[in-house]
Design a protein around this nucleic acid. Structure first.
Lengths: 246, 246
DNA sequence: TCACCTTTGTTTACGCTGTTTACGTTTTAC
DNA sequence: GTAAAACGTAAACAGCGTAAACAAAGGTGA
């Protein structure tokens, strides 16, 4: 993470540290006081500075917010990777059961993090932040990293078990070229059907978790965990697994 | 809708009309300028009034916003009902094919409305608005009305076709009592399995649509319609249908 | 009809917000 | 040692939500 710190002047290191501290302070405000309290002046107050000083580090509050979201997004990815690593410590890496367990663990970790970080989750996965994403948008990279975790697991599982996926000519006509472009962007040689399965899993996972976190299931259920479990069994059957895992 | 207008004094009617106009102006600002532009002062300006005057109609901006959301929510429900009515004009109401078509139409109408009203959709289905829902929250009722549309269709379809649902003792232990309470609240006598199927459909529909509207599928697809179609076929199979409908 | 009261709106004011400008002060670089 | 860059502050501007005091209507009862 801090590998490129080498070669920076002392000043640049201080600057980077301050930039990071601003993000952390902003995030703490977000968590403790709500997203509306993440104001430039509040952040400055909390840091013992005046508001205009923050403009030395970020060109606008909106840009600062994007970096906060990127920071949170990275932490989410790290949390999921950590859960995978902790869970898979016992079994042989690369085996089919280990990969299957890792995938389930990754899904569970996503829900656990989301329910434990509702404000942050809303910022990442709720309505998109206003403001066009620039070419150096830190968010795009975070999204790719995050999605890459699940894509890697699904891919790995398919390479091992070869679970059933629709052949290219069985895909919807409107979907095939889009999946092909997506595959090109990934520099991959997977069958398009694997990508389709991957995207369907993502729809299922995202829908279940954000429905729960945003409270749009409360009209029926107090505890959404059983519904999440049902979703996991659907997801498992999509990738040729049975849930609960044997 | 305006049945209870009878019996109100002329004054109260004027007051209700102004309250409604405020909502409409606020909503137009939301759509044309984004949710951040829906400010008390901007609404007042647009109405040719000063900001504090609005306090005669709503106790706070937050309360006003809740009414805006409720208004939008009602319109969404009306749009879906209208789509159902328009689509089912030809076939015999109450028949299995008609009900199946109505359910699919209702799902399609949801996506159509959502993609055509992204700002409004984000306000309803994104992160929940801050502020505890009071006892007379207009939003709760709107949510019940909205969900009731789909619940009615699924229920009706099950009463006709008796599509397969898990028996009560096949449900997850943690889910059964929750579904039972939900059924009690509905004053219904449906098997719990029907409610479970209904909730799973809602998860699927919400996930697919909000993923598309919030742009969390853009990393892979430019056009999400084929994925929506895939989701519809999953949904159809849950309620014993084949999609596309014969 | 007159007095009274309620309703509706304005004006004014307070404290908050993001952002810009101008101005020092400190640190770095040559 | 000196010029330049970086960092921070104070002041100001425009906008925000909200509260209080006050004026002008409309309806109501004597």
């Amino acid at each position: 993470m801090q590998a490129e710190v080498q070669g920076l002047s002392r000043r640049d290191r201080l600057r980077a540290a301050t930039s990071q501290e601003i993000i952390q302070v902003a995030r703490q405000l977000l968590v403790t006081e709500g997203s509306a309290a993440m104001s430039l002046r509040a952040i400055a107050r909390e840091m013992g500075m005046t508001a205009p000083a923050l403009y030395r580090y970020y060109p606008s509050l909106e840009d600062l917010a994007r970096h906060v979201v990127a920071d949170i997004f990275s932490e989410l990815s790290a949390a999921i990777e950590a859960a995978i690593a902790a869970d898979g410590a016992g079994s042989a890496a690369g085996s089919a059961p280990a990969t299957a367990a890792a995938l389930i663990t990754a899904c569970r970790a996503f829900r656990t993090w989301a329910t434990g970080h509702q404000a942050e989750f809303g910022l990442i996965f709720g309505s998109p932040l206003p403001g066009a994403a620039g070419p150096d948008d830190p968010l795009a990279e975070c999204g790719i990293t995050f999605g890459g975790i699940y894509l890697r697991l699904v891919t790995q599982l398919w390479r091992i078990t070869g679970f059933g996926v629709p052949a290219d000519d069985e895909l919807a006509e409107a979907l095939r070229p889009q999946l092909a472009r997506y595959r090109d962007r990934l520099l991959s040689d997977l069958p398009l059907g694997v990508l389709q399965v991957f995207l369907r899993c993502w729809v299922l996972l995202y829908g279940t978790v954000s429905l729960e976190v945003f409270g749009h299931l409360k009209f029926a259920l107090e505890d959404s965990e059983p519904m999440f479990d049902l979703m996991l069994s659907d997801l498992a059957s999509m990738v040729g697994l049975t849930y609960p895992l044997p």
